[in-house]
Design a protein around this nucleic acid. Structure first.
Lengths: 325, 325
DNA sequence: CTCCTGACTGGGAGCGCTCACAGTTTGTTG
DNA sequence: CAACAAACTGTGAGCGCTCCCAGTCAGGAG
């Protein structure tokens, strides 16, 4: 930096000012410094800068899932990619962290609060993750993906409108004349599990308990849950499966049971992921835009880093009609 | 740190020594400092440390793919997850970076060489990525995933034995009596595209050009390539598809063409990814262990950060027999 | 007893920045 | 024309560490 200053014929202070927005710098000095920077190939030392500003210009992307299952989830991939890109645009570094085990979480908790990052993007499958409290207690800005059950008033989050999406799907199935509509939910400790079921209940009052069953978002669990449902309610004429991946499983169970889709049983999914299109038949589903979720998360986080505010963003979901229902 | 020193009744220097291995520290001082650290909740400021040591204790994971296609690739996910975990074990931070566009690459090149990271894990689909030269010229330790075509002697890499895997598959197909064996390769500017074809040629001398076609690792390209192959060589009795995802596409084309698998056409894949098991019929394929690749990459990188050595690791591949062949 | 060596300790210097402050110049106002 | 504000510039201090060097102290060799 001293070199740049010398080449440009100014002082360190002026170079620093140029680097930080160029306020209170004369046009002459500005161009001289810019030229000197190019000539010397100078690039700031982020560590030195962080040392004095107490800001690291980086955020952590923390994946806190006991099973590490999320890494196989296409939604997660879109989220990660979206965040990476949104942050890169603002010259902020993304530190990727996995905190699967209890010990991981402790380590990450310490690490994060050591000032290594300015904020946290938290992606965790289950509610009440111990990390949430840990991070919150340090006053570090956090934005969660999905509604953080039990912490809605405490930490910011961005979520798709699960409940409304479910309502849309069930309403649609009803509008097509289906009367015995089953549901395969996600885990009941995830917002997707809870809220989509709530949406189902919003439309169908006093639903037959035999029409409700649970999966864990995996294809295999969809197969099992569908078999279970078929067992308990052989007369069902539609099923709302709360993830596309599970819907794939449900479809194969239905095929095996000799049911035609959608003639005998209509199938609705959730996510509108890649697989929905290539399913057989192509899946009618609810779209949630994870790219949008990621950009909103980044926006929220950067906002709250400056201002320390808290807010929630609920993004709309949309019915996508294909052939399965 | 000064606080810790005071609480422990020693000097900054001694605290620093404890923090960095505890050499030349008396047992009394050691325990006193450790207690003081716990009591004060002290944690080192990585920026200050990096400022003086010129080491950041972090490495960049650079995804350099024009199409961003890799983010949808299950192999890539395993790689990323493996690297994250392997690095976390050694308390090294992983910075995730996407360098899709030319401008991205320029930005990343500058950023990386500014001393933000101690090394680079490079994952790029195509050979001759301009980033490779850029990074290499700065003398930064790099380890690539897959053989970096044209740079084999210059940068370290970890790769599965593509060529041998292909040989195993084609040999197996031959051993089952198949004589008209087609191949759907990956892009010809990727090591997987080149080397697996080479393996095929190793086994089949003077192959019928009509039996060779290319895809781009996507499912859709597998469908197209299979149709193309069926067109040019209606009598083929086996096909080696150079990725499981493409194999899925090939299978659906074969189904549509009324071919039975494996009776009419045997299908072999490559990767042994998740989808191989759930394919219909389950896919005979070549396993490459990406978790192993990632741990080897991390090992190689950390070695070369200290020593500045270069090396290559080729990991064995293995035939996994299921029902499609 | 002197000398040396090795274990250990404290403190100054400095890593490369930003920030606050004092100082200079220019333009504007009463 | 004095007084003042606004635009701009340079410099010292200090962010929290590590490294180096000078020093102390014990124990063993000569």
């Amino acid at each position: 930096m001293e070199d740049v200053a010398e080449v440009a014929g100014v002082s360190r202070g002026t170079v620093s000012r140029v680097l930080n927005g160029g306020h209170y710098v004369s046009p002459d000095a500005l161009t001289a410094v810019q030229r000197a920077i190019r000539k010397t190939g100078y690039v700031v030392n982020q560590h030195a800068r962080s040392l004095v500003t107490q800001r690291s210009n980086s955020v952590a992307f923390i994946l806190s899932d006991p099973q590490d299952r999320l890494f196989e989830d296409p939604n997660f991939n879109i989220l990660l990619k979206g965040c990476t890109q949104a942050l890169a645009e603002r010259d902020i570094t993304l530190l990727l962290t996995i905190a699967g085990t209890q010990e991981d979480r402790r380590r990450v908790g310490r690490w994060v609060t050591a000032g290594h990052v300015d904020g946290v993007l938290l992606v965790s499958e289950h509610a009440g993750s111990p990390l949430t409290d840990e991070l919150r207690s340090r006053g570090l800005p956090i934005v969660a993906a999905g509604r953080p059950i039990g912490h809605e008033r405490e930490i910011s989050y961005v979520a798709a409108d699960d409940r409304d999406g479910a309502r849309q799907m069930v309403n649609y199935l009803r509008s097509r004349g289906r009367r015995r509509i089953g549901i395969i939910t996600g885990p009941t400790d995830t917002p997707g599990g809870v809220d989509r079921l709530a949406g189902y209940r919003d439309v169908i009052d006093e639903p037959d308990p035999g029409l409700i069953t649970h999966g864990d978002y995996t294809q295999a669990s969809g197969e099992r849950a569908m078999a279970d449902l078929l067992d308990r309610a052989p007369d069902l004429d539609a099923v709302f499966v709360c993830s596309d991946l599970m819907a794939l499983g449900a479809i194969s169970t239905l095929h095996r049971a000799g049911k035609r889709i959608p003639q005998d049983v209509a199938v609705g999914g959730f996510d509108d992921s890649k697989v929905a299109v290539s399913a057989d038949p192509p899946l009618t589903t609810i779209r949630q835009d994870f790219t949008r979720v990621s950009t909103e998360m980044v926006r929220l986080l950067l906002d709250s880093i400056g201002t320390n505010t808290r807010s929630a963003v609920i993004l709309p979901t949309e019915l996508v009609i294909r052939e399965s229902a």
